[in-house]
Simulated assay, not measured.
Amino acid sequence: MHEKEFLAARLDEQRGHLRAVAYRILGSLSEAEDALQETWLKASRAELGEIDNLPGWLTTVLGRVCLDMLRARKARRETPLDDEPAPLVRLVHRADPEEEALLADSVGLAMLVVLDTLSPAERIAFVLHDMFAVPFEEIAPIVDRGTATTQKLASRARRRVRGGDAGPDPDLARRRAAIAAFLAAARDGNFAALLEMLDPDAVFRADATAVTLGSRAELKGAAAVAEAFSGRAQGACAALLGTAAGMAAGVVVAPLGRMSMVLAVTFAGDRITAFDVIADPARLAGVTVAAG
């Protein structure tokens, strides 16, 4: 009994770290807990006393569990059970405010959106190496690749996260910052600040899919647009959007990191003149997102 308690204490010492790893890999609190439970089950069957590097061993086991979960999710083409679609008109109601805040603070909403577009192996390699400094030599067995190939997986993921190899565009950075300020004012319900950032003739337009999900088809004038955003936008973030026309700053609405729509933003000088909502799946498929 004493030995079991000792081993349980050693496992509990790693719980916080492993939970953070699983959370960032999976983007879901409930799935992270499921991954931890599976890891604990595997650990209970192992001879832990013979393992020299317990944290490394547990991370490897957890990584394999998470990889299997990501592959199963991709095969089923379904999102985690705690990820509920949000009414577009509210831009966006949070199914779980505490979890949404945790995700945004620990990873960044735009980052979660990009991670969701990666292959399971790319996501594992990038998160473990770039976020937790796990050596490629230890990641390679998890994804069943050689070390060099694992490095390439992480490199591809890194390019996706950064939006390609092009250098930073000062204009894009400035507009993204302006959009982030607008969304912050929206979340705070600062109507006056929203008006200040909008062109007097600003418009809000939504595609047919967004309208069927509850969005207004069109709003005209700064006051109407500001009212639509005021006190909302908790599940939205500023991001760089890649389309056939090139890279532009815009808005991604992604409850719990799953992209449900994007808003193309048009500027005249430093003021926003238009928001164009894209929710049609076919059109969304042609949009890439970069965390910056």
Score class of each variant (00 low, 15 high):
Asp83His: 14
Phe204Thr: 07
Gly257Leu: 01
Arg77Asp: 14
Ile142Phe: 04
Asp188Asn: 14
Arg258Phe: 02
Thr60Gly: 15
Ala224Asn: 12
Arg174Ala: 13
Asp171Tyr: 04
Glu137Asn: 10
Leu284Ser: 03
Ala75Trp: 05
Leu70Pro: 00
Pro200Trp: 02
Trp57Ala: 13
Val289Glu: 14
Ala46Thr: 07
Gly286Phe: 05
Pro80Thr: 02
Met197Thr: 06
Asp116Leu: 05
Glu84Leu: 15
Leu128Thr: 05
Gly214Met: 11
Pro80Ile: 08
Asp207Gln: 12
Asn53Glu: 10
Pro97Ile: 02
Arg77Met: 15
Val61Cys: 10
Ala157Asp: 03
Pro168Arg: 15
Asp34Trp: 03
Arg64Met: 10
Arg160Ile: 04
Ala154Phe: 00
Thr212Trp: 13
Thr212Asn: 15
Arg24Trp: 02
Leu183Tyr: 09
Phe229Ser: 11
Leu29Trp: 04
Val134Leu: 11
Ala290Lys: 08
Ala148Glu: 09
Ala248Pro: 00
Leu219Ser: 07
Thr60Gln: 14
Ala193Lys: 09
Met261Ala: 15
Asp144Arg: 12
Gly167His: 09
His2Phe: 00
Leu213Arg: 15
Pro141Lys: 06
His2Leu: 03
Ala180Met: 03
Phe182His: 02
Tyr23Val: 05
Pro55Cys: 09
Ala186Pro: 04
Ala217Ile: 07
His17Val: 05
Val211Ala: 10
Asp116Pro: 08
Ser155Val: 02
Val143Asn: 06
Ile139Pro: 11
Arg176Glu: 09
Phe136Leu: 11
Pro168Trp: 09
Gly164Trp: 00
Glu196Cys: 03
Glu84Thr: 13
Ala244Asn: 01
Val253Asn: 08
Glu100Asp: 12
Arg271Ile: 03
Val262Gln: 04
Gly63Leu: 00
Ala254Phe: 14
Val251Asp: 03
Ile51Glu: 11
Val265Met: 07
Leu103Tyr: 05
Thr149Tyr: 01
Asp116Ile: 02
Ala95Tyr: 14
His93Cys: 04
Phe267Thr: 06
Gly246Met: 04
Val21Ala: 02
Ala282Arg: 10
Ala185Phe: 04
Val262Leu: 06
Val211Phe: 05
Ala291Ile: 06
Val251Cys: 07
Leu36Cys: 05
Thr209Tyr: 15
Met259His: 10
Leu91Tyr: 15
Ala222Glu: 02
Asp207Met: 12
Leu70Asn: 03
Val107Ser: 09
Ala125Trp: 09
Lys220Gln: 11
Ala154Glu: 01
Arg162Met: 12
Asp52Asn: 08
Lys220Ser: 14
Ala264Thr: 12
Val253Arg: 10
Ala104Arg: 13
Ala226Tyr: 11
Ser44His: 08
Leu70Cys: 05
Gly163Glu: 07
Ala268Arg: 12
Thr79Asp: 15
Ala290His: 09
Ala178Thr: 11
Val225His: 07
Thr266Gln: 13
Leu103Gln: 14
Glu196Ile: 02
Asp171Asn: 07
Ala148Ser: 11
Asp144Thr: 03
Ser230Asn: 08
Val161Arg: 03
Cys237Val: 15
Ala228Glu: 15
Ala104Thr: 14
Leu172Asn: 07
Pro120Glu: 07
Gly146Gln: 05
Leu256Asp: 14
Trp57Thr: 06
Ala254Met: 13
Val107Thr: 15
Glu122Arg: 08
Met131Ile: 07
Gly235Leu: 11
Pro255Gln: 11
Leu219Arg: 12
Asp171Glu: 13
Val161Pro: 07
Gly16Phe: 01
Asp165Ala: 12
Leu48Val: 01
His17Ser: 08
